[in-house]
Amino acid sequence: MKALRDALAPLAALVILLALWETVARVFSFNPMVLPPPSTIGLEASRSAGSLLSGALSTGRSALVGFGLSTGVGVLAAIILSSSRVLERALYPYALFLQMVPIIAIAPVLVVWFGHGARAVAVSSFIVSVFPVIANTHTGMRSVDPALRDMFRLYGARRVATLWKLELPASLPHLFTGLRVASGLSVVGAIVGEWVAGVVEGDSGLGILVLVANRQGNTALVFAAVLAASALGLLLFGAVSLTGERMLRRWHPSASGS
């Protein structure tokens, strides 16, 4: 019931926006290649539902693999960075460097390394989405309550026990912040990856669909594919948020410090 009420305002805004868009596009009778009205996009979407769906599946799979890699590698990297000050100083700049990599520029290299297809696309998705996971988890592990660290030390806890029973659980809220950001980025990374490394025949993703539709002058389909990609990102974001909420339900932030 509450979810319905929460959804009401943005839904109303959407309806108004679409109506406005439709009116403007019709009244000024824009060339549909420049700005197709929502009704045209809707029609195009239902006509190309098949390729949109298979595109979304393909892109979704790559983004999911990229996101999974980001989660695993990101947490691992954060653990390594947090394990010693020396390692942190030595390696953090390179983690930062990873974020600065202009993915469009490096994507051709990914093709050289991984060939055309899903593998290179997933790696692109990973590169784009891993940094927020590293940075947030690292921050979380660094900001563990020092008194709790002392307590673990007093009780002779081993390094692994401190990691599993203190540092990782304590950084869960931070980790999920990173994962939420990464979820959206992983779809962006997959689309960009497809532009450079995607395959046109067979298993082609939404990024390819955008390219092809654009070349054909089918702007309505471009919009439809972009919307599908956004929906994909939103879906992943929602799943991550829900998981996070479930895992953190018991300890709201007011309790985490004491």
Partner: peptide, 20 residues
């Protein structure tokens, strides 16, 4: 000694519990 019960305990000003 590792494996035995630690002989010293410390109570801080705040409870410092693990919220999870």
């Amino acid at each position: 000694t590792p494996g035995a019960r630690p002989p010293i305990a410390f109570v801080f000003q705040d409870a410092h519990l693990l919220p999870w």
